[in-house]
Design a protein around this nucleic acid. Sequence first.
DNA 1: ACCTGAACACCGTTCAAGT
DNA 2: ACCTGAACACCGTTCAAGT
Lengths: 264, 264
Amino acid sequence: MTEPDPTADPDSPEGRGGAAATIPAAPPGAGRAGLDRRRILGAAIEFIDGNGLNALTMRRLGAHLGVEAMALYRYVPGREQLLDGVVEAVIDELYGDPDVHLSASHGWQDYLQRLAHGLRRIALAHPEVFPLVATRPPAAPWVRPPLRSLRWVESFLDAMIDSGFTEEAAVSAYRAYSSFLLGHLLLEVSQKGVKIGPEDHPDGVHDSAEATDLGDYPTVVRLEALLSLDESAAEFEEALENLLGRLEVVLRESRTPRRGDPRA
Amino acid sequence: MTEPDPTADPDSPEGRGGAAATIPAAPPGAGRAGLDRRRILGAAIEFIDGNGLNALTMRRLGAHLGVEAMALYRYVPGREQLLDGVVEAVIDELYGDPDVHLSASHGWQDYLQRLAHGLRRIALAHPEVFPLVATRPPAAPWVRPPLRSLRWVESFLDAMIDSGFTEEAAVSAYRAYSSFLLGHLLLEVSQKGVKIGPEDHPDGVHDSAEATDLGDYPTVVRLEALLSLDESAAEFEEALENLLGRLEVVLRESRTPRRGDPRA
DNA sequence: ACCTGAACACCGTTCAAGT
DNA sequence: ACCTGAACACCGTTCAAGT
């Protein structure tokens, strides 16, 4: 186990006096100046993306930041909370995505489409982190992965209700949407990232390994080419369209009933 | 690849000869007689179900079996492979489920329904294990969780093809089915089990904790009762029905084309 | 105020020994 | 043949110290 740190650090942590003054002066390339919760979470995400979830230890993350592990405890209560923070920070990237709006000003379909694609972008950008997003115990039972944030739940429900969905229909749409996104993105990320979930990519390559006897699975063998195609993107679009279609029907059927007309 | 054999084992593997002789005689309550890969995997599942995934260490599992941790290495190459074995063993429980058939003798809808419900039963029976099923890197990219077994992939494809689906439609159905099951079951298990994924239930209860300011989320607050309803079962049935409906359309439209009629 | 050294209890895993 | 003791390198976390 050596330093993970792929981006070698040609600049030493300290002095580097040069421009003088009392300020430690953040080094140009990689800063190791003020430790800071945001910086720690960012480094953790970077580290996981680059080395896999299993490789992340407090000690190695410290080293990655040019600091001893114990220094992290001033900003983060412990490893578990670090991981919670990572999930939160990754999901919060949605907030900075110019393609994703918080309100349904262009209609609920547009809102759902953009939100879904935004989440997909995040999942694909952080394939090693996503299983954590999918899998960490939610704060409340109704904060469902992968949406995991009160702000987005609020925004989702408002968008649907403002568009004419009843409260019941909005909640049920939220459930169906979460489940669709979770399944698709977790599967997609698991296929891309080679690995998924609480796993490692240590060093051994053990390719051969379990060359299970394929003789018993003729159909699988025959369809291997078909099965190996990566249709993730198309599947995603199709399933999303299908979901929107279903919701459209719900909306049409459940239009908030006219006043003075208690039934039909 | 172990024996599927879910039928609990009231009889110890070995002799059980009378009441005496040289045999160490398995203690009545917990057997610690012959260690054995099957017994180890069973104990691991039991342990995870009871104590959470995070609590499972080689040393504690050893203790649970009345043995030192080092003894396990004679039957299992290491912790990671132990977890792979756990996933496999849990999925293999399907094989002993009398409600789930390997062939579509009662039609493909019946087959898909039974398979889905069988998997759901397993997920709910082992909520602490399921995140592992959802999340472990698949052996091949097209062995998609939660189906995770060549035997079931083979059986699935055969069932669909035998029912008249084209090979392409069968593969695409397999993809849609996996994604639906994964999303629903992971979400359901995460809500039930209080926790999910690589998590712990150590001892502290920390209820209060993050009492986030709900003032900013009026819609969430207003709909809290609705959001808190557990509609998992109904959602599951509905989404499954919807999927079957979609597939029915695919089947009807893509009926293997008549000979001598190359288009329409 | 912020970081480190040393220490504690615990891990996975190896290997030479015990029986 | 099967299990254990002792050991190694590594972990998360604490706390008294350093600067």
